[in-house]
Every structure is written in C-alpha cells, then in structure tokens.
Write a protein that binds this DNA or RNA. Sequence first.
DNA 1: TAGATTGTTAATCGATTAACAATC
DNA 2: TAGATTGTTAATCGATTAACAATC
Lengths: 208, 208
Amino acid sequence: MAKKQLTQSALERLPRYYQYVRDLREKSGSESVSSAALASFVGVDDTQVRKDLALIGVKGCPRVGYKSALVQKTICRVLGFDQPYRAIIVGIGQLGGALANYGAFALYGLQIAALFDNDPRQIGRTISGYAVRSSAEIAGFVAKTGVRLAIVTVPRRAAQEVAAMLVECGIDAIWNFSHTRLEVPAHVAVRNENLGVGLAELSYHLHR
Amino acid sequence: MAKKQLTQSALERLPRYYQYVRDLREKSGSESVSSAALASFVGVDDTQVRKDLALIGVKGCPRVGYKSALVQKTICRVLGFDQPYRAIIVGIGQLGGALANYGAFALYGLQIAALFDNDPRQIGRTISGYAVRSSAEIAGFVAKTGVRLAIVTVPRRAAQEVAAMLVECGIDAIWNFSHTRLEVPAHVAVRNENLGVGLAELSYHLHR
DNA sequence: TAGATTGTTAATCGATTAACAATC
DNA sequence: TAGATTGTTAATCGATTAACAATC
C-alpha cells in the first residue's frame, strides 16, 4: 500500500504534522503551509519535514509551500486514519473506562467496538453507550466481527495471559496500557504505552 | 546531582530496566541480573545496557552480572523516584479523573496533591479522596505548597491558556495530555503524551 | 584453571543537518 | 526578473553494534 516502509521515527513525526495541519486549517483556513512552519511546530529541522513529505509522495510548490489540504489528506491515508477501524477494550477499570469515553479517537479513525471485563460487578454496566461484556465472549465477538485491534487495560499480572488469549482469537494488534511487556508472536504489533517513561523524563528534570 | 547529562534515549530505557528489575525481584527474588537478560526484555543490545548502567555508576561483577537490588536502587535515585514529588491535575474530565485514581504513579514517586477544574458541576466532587477545587485557587495552592508539576488534561482549546497561567504560578514541569503542543519558556519541561502517535503506529500496521 | 560476563574501544549504521541547485 | 521555497545530495553527528581484552 505505502510506497516505502516508513521508519519508526517518521511514523512518530507524521501524526504531529497531521495535528498541526488540522489545527491550522480549522483556525485560519490557510491553504498552504511551509516546511519551516511545520518544522518549528514539531521541533525538527525543515529539511526533515521536506524529506518526510517527499517520502509519502506529497509535492510542494517552490515559493509557496505545500497545499495544506493535500498534506492532511495524504498523511491521513498513509496512516490509515481514513479507513475506520475498530477496537475492543479489555479491562474496564479507571483507565479502560476513560478510554471508552474518549472522544478524540475518532480523529484517528478509531471506533470502539465493545468492552470486556471478567469482574461480574462490571459486566452489564453501560459506559458511553456500550454494555460491558464478559471476557468469555471475546473469542466469539472477534470471530464474528473481524476486529483486529485490542486495547489492553487489565492489571499487570493478568496482562500476559490476556494477550495470549487475544492472539489465539485472531487479534493482530495490541495497544498495551498494562505495566508490563507482552510476549507475542512476531506478526502481532504491540504498542506499549508506558506512563513511567513520561514520568522519568519529568522527574529527572525536577530533581536535577 | 547526576554525574552526566542523560540523553533522551537513555532516559527512555532506564524506566524499562527499572520495571524489569522490580518485577524480577518481586517474582523470583533473584539477586543478580545479567546485561543480556535486561537487553532481551527491553529489546536493545546488551552492550547498550552495560553502557547505560556504567553511565549511572552501577558496576557489575564479571561472571555474575549486576546486583539487582543495586540496579533498582540506583535507577530509582537517578530518576528521582525515591524523592517523592507532587503534582496537581488540571481538568477533571474522564482522563483527569482516571489519572487521579491511578495507583501505579506511586511506583514512580508521584503523589497527587490536588485536583482543579473550572466547571462548577465538577467543583466539590470527591475523587479518590480529593475534592475538586476551582481553578481560581491554583495560584494560591502552588504558592503555598511549592508543587512544581502539573498534569494538564483540559480540552485542546483551553490548553495553551492554562499552561501560560500555570507557568505564571511557578509550575516548571507540565505533563500534557491535551491534544495540542504548548508554548512555554525554555526553563519549563513539557512532556507531551500524544495518543495519536501510538495509534499511528498501530493503524499503519493494520492497514499495510 | 576455565569460562562466563563485564567494561571499553573501534566500527558501523542510520538519522539529522548543512549546503546549494532547481523551480515557480 | 528576483526572491522565496522546495528538492536532493553531501557532510555531520550521535546512537547502536561488534569486537575483544579485562576480570572474578
């Protein structure tokens, strides 16, 4: 689909460009954007921006800049934000509940398909319009709907077991918010969202 | 305090080593850990681990490995997790509420000091033992308690204004969960927690 | 001792930045 | 045209990896 494999670092910059261009168009309706403006927002060199945009096939106009609508649309397409995809959330504690309610996911093409928990006190609750279902139903739900992404917000000690079960069910992408690293087969994409990393940076700054 | 300035990438690896060693000691009580074991967990080269540990002054024993208690304690100290620090949370929506309840922060030395919101319907609510206060009280609270870190979970359009006010109050570290980049003076540390970056990676994988 | 692991220097790799020509 | 901005090659920089000696 994409012309070239994007590097990890490019993959981290693109959503930031996307955010900037989206905001820019909403606020000022500006039709073009320069690599220098994008660079200063994201905090990289302007050459970097031009390389990234060239990589995804966006051409600019010397003297003018890049068409902002084209930049937005192309990033959207390359990252797959224009082809809505669904996710289940497994583990409806504080964090899982917050994510179920989180409106901003729509900006990135993500829809929540269902919520699961194995605590009987949670099952049957309704959050943001979704009934919480028993984890025992996950396999059937995934088989029926073809959902491929799971957001894992279970406690640390349950995470590995849950991940193994999800992979068994056919899930091939996991967004992991539990505080542990997951072992999964190579074909499954895992993104670990470790809040400790963010805290390390801030704590180090505060105590220096 | 620290012997050398840590690079950004080292600062991202250290909390992962910390997590592994903490888990290891809890589960197996193992007294030593090899650079190879740490490397395979975090997904880096073992030479990298030895360099990182040398950088923070941890010495190992050839043939044996590193003392796990020492590794844990030293990382803890270098990152400042052993000197508890407090944060206020500004913006008590879904996400702010979830963070207020989030138990895992204690593992990283973080304590929540107070919650603030400017919605009259939120003010006075009690979450996780904390009463939600009016944002108008932030300046006084910061001056009185000396809190330096603020967790910002307000909507995007309010974020820049809130950040400016916090800096004015003396806050010098911001953990930003709003979907926008903040402009702050150079002495203020900002960590942007952009969920879009995580979604970009997963979405790209799913649509490839 | 023998062998496993650390510690450190050198080599490699990739990402970032600089320079400058091409272009509208 | 003149001038601003893109596009691209070359140079630099830093991080990662390889190699191997030191050590208990």
